[in-house]
Design a protein around this nucleic acid. Structure first.
Length: 960
RNA sequence: GCAGAGGUCGCCGAGCAUGGUCAAAGGCGUAGGCUUCAGGAGCCUAUCCUUCAGAGGUUCGUGGGUUCAAAUCCCACCCUCUGCACCA
């Protein structure tokens, strides 16, 4: 077994044995409750879950180390249809599906057989999931765990819905859905063979009347064009039916009759006939009462809507094209017994004024695009373009009755409403593209009646939700507006369905609360489930009144306890535990849940709890990609949490994911990166072990102070980043940048014996512990610490340990190394001897004066020279100063502001000593002899007379 | 279609809000050296171009503009990605 695996098992066992991550109320300590949306258990946990949950765990561990009482609970989502669907696929012996279960999920064959029981399947994945979560080292309090089919949890959901209903947030209504007639259930995107993303579209039907009173319901998205009608198109070759629809006699395509049966229409088909029978007849416009002819239109698709289309050639390219085609070939009309003038006399009727176009926009666009006839594919493009333009910019003309002068956009809804009320319009739902169910049955649109909705349209509810958003923190900040957008945009949500697992609607027989609707405030249940489980509280004790008391403090507890059979103490413990933990302090999820779950969570909290129990913070992150692609079982790139941990180790998996991205960016899982990280950790372990073992001296030189100083900035950055959920930045600094500091120190120092280094390494481990807890625990124990690093005190930034002089000293070294390398590169010489010349003291005087002036923004060469000339110490050097001043000014433009301030603070540094101290280090670096002289040393070795080039922070260099 | 996010030096990815400190962090990859029985790992150095002295030049999707100064501000254009409901 690998070393990594040993550490993982060892520390997991210790954590479990000591219950370190179990959190109970402690009034003396501030609490932090973090949550992660419970995963749906129709499959194993994967690296996507791992990424999101690793962020939560890093935060939880960080806060725990900061001394907070941290609760991280976990649960499992079993509600809904997919679990049943999956089980049924096993029962049907779906070969491909079973192969995936076996190969991707790694389920043993014997177990797969038992998946015919969906509850068994859910339990299996839950048990596997729990092992995976423990294996990766998430610091969860398992005493609060539950699944959404547990009767006690369902009692909680019943309480939730009873309250929502009483507050008026649950309403009843009808709703169109994509429907599979064979399965007799709505066909969601995931249940489809084809037609992903297709939703029902509502067409308005205008009830034109034939002379005998029969209704021709023509379907349109543009009912305002009723004022510009010139004729109706019927496909002469399609089959139409005459049917009694809600007591009226309608003529529609055969397909349309089937559709309407599912759309709350009482329909009886009386006879079927060919479309050509209708050609040549006349009908009346129910609004204008004018009469028009029915013409043959071969482009009319009987499968779309009613198969009856009315023609507005002035504004609809297809209509104009079809009309033009007929007018150019009027002889085809003879087969329908019509005379050409009926067609040739038709003129488009303009009803919409559109900027940039004349009378007949459709005619213009057809001519502009050079569209040949009604079969030209460009006709479709023209239709879309014109529709958009007229919708946004079109104004109805005088002929449009009460709607004249209004824009299309503003009257459309009103007009539909008016027409429906006047009985001249109706509607039909249809699909823009065909949808086929997984069972291979073509779908249609069904109107579900008596559907239960969460009324997210309620303006007061929306308002409260906005308030909740306003008072909470969203990470990253940039995601906040999208929550408000979603809240404005959400409308009625069907919250119950008839199939699948879940909690029955308390008042609606046969309805089950749907999966996104039963999981909105369950975080509150975590706070009390510990007591429910420990005391084996019966579901029947958990009445709405009991929950009202626990969550609201409502009711008389003596009576209540008697009624439900829970002791007063226990009830009070539950109440106070809820009050201690709630509200939750963080909920982290992937951004895909913003438009649904996370917003629902906000809505429901706003509805059910007072503002002090509304969420404190929500954070969102990107969606995990695998090798640049979305992760799907079908793509063969599905990686389970368990599999990743087995292959790369828990620490590398966690850190590899967290280094992938932060904020809303999508992290990319690259196997190569993860295994590189794995070996990096191996080397980290070796490195830290060596340092820990070698610590013995009490040295406190400039280098130790430098290391401490650097460490302080790292502590500050890691702490601040973690507080902002910037896990990537935090880990990058904690792992790589701090490591680089340590490397630099060791190189400069030449050994690892200082105890100070050992202390820094211990601090380093603490900063890494939230991310890589296993190896940190192990190394921590090697330093002789008896307690867990998981509960060690988080390092605190200490300003007193900042040492700008030490930092400037090292800057001097790195700067001179850069210059030396530059020279070597440019000259391509192999150095035999490198000489450095430290700057003469009088130059420092000049330098610091110029620096002061620069910072104030008044560095004028003339003034400076006068000032220097007046100084008797400088007077003898005036010739050199004349050359030095412009060089210094130029050099200072490249120095960052904060460094300038530091230099002002520490004044002159002892370049000579610093260089002399680093001579050996530099000599090793360039593999040559290094000599250090003072610029004004008369005995210096300086054949090319370079020394005079020296200036502060830029010693002169001579290389031979 | 509607809404949102984004295009940075081989790759991933900082930086752009508060323009100058940006040839642009960090990681990866690649090359060379050291170490190692070997492999791996580790350590060091280099990695836009030019340059025999610490310098210069051309870069941050494309094209304009503002400014002494733009990866960073403004405009236009091109391209990519994500969500859009009864479904987890």
């Amino acid at each position: 077994m690998s070393q990594t695996k040993q550490f993982e098992q060892k520390w997991q066992a210790k954590w479990e044995a000591t219950h370190v991550f179990e959190a109970d109320p402690d009034p003396k300590r501030q609490k932090v409750m973090v949550t992660f949306p419970f995963p749906y258990m129709n499959g194993p946990l994967h690296v996507g879950h791992t990424f999101t949950a690793s962020r939560v765990d890093a935060y939880a561990r960080f806060k725990r180390m900061q001394g907070f009482n941290v609760l991280w609970p976990w649960a499992w989502h079993w509600t809904g249809q997919p679990l049943l669907g999956a089980s049924q696929r096993v029962a049907r012996g779906d070969v491909e599906f079973i192969r995936v279960l076996h190969e991707v999920d790694g389920v043993p064959d014997e177990t797969i057989k038992k998946f015919v029981d969906p509850l068994y399947m859910a339990q299996y994945y839950t048990d596997e999931g729990r092992l995976a979560v423990k294996g990766i080292g998430f610091s969860v309090d398992w005493r609060r765990e539950f699944t959404t089919v547990m009767p006690t949890f369902q009692k909680f959901v019943e309480w939730q819905y009873k309250n929502l209903k009483e507050k008026g947030y649950v309403t009843r209504g009808t709703h169109p859905v994509v429907w599979c007639p064979k399965d007799k259930s709505p066909t969601g995107d995931h249940d489809r063979q084809s037609g992903e993303g297709v939703t029902p579209e509502e067409y308005t039907l205008i009830k034109y009347r034939l002379d005998d009173g029969t209704i021709l319901p023509a379907a349109t998205f543009r009912p305002e064009t009723i004022y510009g009608i010139t004729n109706i198109w019927i496909n002469p070759e399609a089959t139409y039916v005459e049917a009694t629809v809600n007591g009226e006699c309608w003529i529609i395509s055969q397909e349309a009759a089937e559709k309407l049966k599912e759309q709350e229409k009482k329909i009886q088909v009386n006879r079927a006939f060919q479309g050509k029978e209708l050609i040549g007849k006349t009908f009346q416009n129910p609004v204008t009462k004018l009469k028009f002819p029915i013409l043959p239109g071969w482009f009319v698709d009987p499968k779309t809507a009613t198969g009856v289309v009315y023609s507005v050639p002035a504004h609809a390219p297809y209509d104009y094209l079809a009309l033009r085609d007929l007018q150019q070939n009027p002889e085809v009309l003879s087969q329908f017994g019509m005379d050409p003038p009926v067609v040739t006399q038709i003129k488009p009727i303009s009803i919409i004024k559109l900027e940039g176009f004349g009378e007949f926009p459709a005619v213009e666009i057809v001519e502009k695009m050079g569209i040949k006839d009604q079969n030209d594919p460009k006709a479709d493009q023209a239709t879309k373009e014109l529709y958009k333009k007229e919708f946004h910019g079109g104004v109805l003309k005088e002929s449009c009755g009460p709607y004249a002068g209004k824009s299309v956009r503003e009257v459309k809804d009103l007009l539909i409403k008016d027409f429906k009320e006047a009985g001249v319009a109706d509607s039909i739902y249809d699909l823009s593209k065909p949808v086929v169910c997984r069972c291979m049955t073509p779908c249609l649109v069904k109107i579900l009646s008596d559907q239960w909705f969460l009324n997210y349209s309620d303006p007061e509810w929306k308002q409260k939700a906005h308030e909740a958003v306003a008072q909470m923190t969203i990470y990253p900040e940039s995601a906040k507006p999208s929550f408000n957008t979603v809240i404005d945009w959400l409308r009625e949500w069907a919250c119950a369905r008839t199939t699948g697992f879940g909690t029955p609607l308390p008042w609606g027989k046969g309805w089950i609360i749907e999966t996104l609707s039963d999981s909105t405030v369950y975080m509150a249940f975590y706070t009390i489930n510990k007591h429910i489980k420990q005391n084996s509280i019966k579901p029947e004790s958990l009445t709405p009144e009991a929950f009202d008391y626990i969550f609201y403090g409502k009711g008389n507890k003596t009576d209540l306890c008697k009624a439900v059979g829970i002791s007063v103490d226990l009830l009070d413990s539950m109440r106070s535990e809820f009050l201690y933990w709630y509200p939750f302090d963080l909920r982290n999820s992937a951004k895909e849940l913003v438009p649904n779950h996370l917003s629902f969570c906000i809505f429901h909290h706003a509805a059910l709890f007072p503002p002090e129990h509304w969420p404190k913070a929500i954070s969102v992150n990107g969606m995990l990609m695998v090798e640049g692609q979305g992760m799907h079982k079908s793509k063969g790139n599905f990686i389970t949490m368990k599999g990743a941990v087995e292959k790369y180790g828990a620490d590398a998996t966690r850190c590899g994911l967290l280094l992938g991205a932060e904020a809303m960016d999508d992290p990319d899982w690259r196997a190569e990166n993860i295994s590189d990280l794995q070996s990096k950790f191996e080397s980290l372990i070796g490195f830290a072990t060596a340092v820990i073992a070698s610590a013995k001296t009490d040295e406190d030189t400039m280098l130790e102070r430098w290391l401490q100083s650097k460490l302080q900035s790292r502590i500050k950055e890691v702490t601040e980043s973690l507080d902002q959920l910037k896990t990537r930045t935090a880990l990058q600094v904690a792992l790589f940048e701090t490591w680089n500091d340590l490397r630099w120190y060791i190189q400069r120092k030449g050994n690892t014996q200082a105890k100070a280094l050992n202390e820094v390494v211990k601090t380093w481990l603490k900063m890494l512990a939230p991310f890589a807890p296993f190896l940190c625990e192990e190394l921590w124990s090697q330093t002789g610490e008896a307690d867990f690093i998981s509960t060690a005190k988080w390092p605190v930034f200490d300003e007193n340990k900042l040492d700008v002089a030490a930092e400037e000293q090292e800057n001097l070294i790195t700067d001179i190394m850069t210059d030396t390398s530059n020279i070597l590169k440019a000259t391509k010489i192999t150095p035999k001897h490198i000489c450095y010349y430290s700057t003469a003291p009088w130059k420092w005087q000049v330098y610091l004066k110029i620096l002061d002036k620069t910072v104030c923004g008044e560095a004028k060469i003339g003034d400076l020279m006068k000032e220097f000339a007046a100084d008797k110490d400088l007077k003898p050097h005036m010739k050199d100063i004349a050359a030095l001043v412009p060089r210094v000014i130029k050099a200072l433009t490249k120095v960052p502001g904060d460094r300038k301030a530091n230099i002002q603070k520490i004044k002159a540094v002892d370049e000579h000593n610093i260089l002399a101290g680093a001579a050996k280090f530099l000599g090793d670096r360039y593999n040559t002899e290094v000599s250090v002289y003072s610029e004004d040393d008369q005995k210096r070795f300086d054949p090319k007379n370079r020394a005079s080039m020296a200036m502060p922070y830029q010693p002169a260099i001579y290389i031979e």
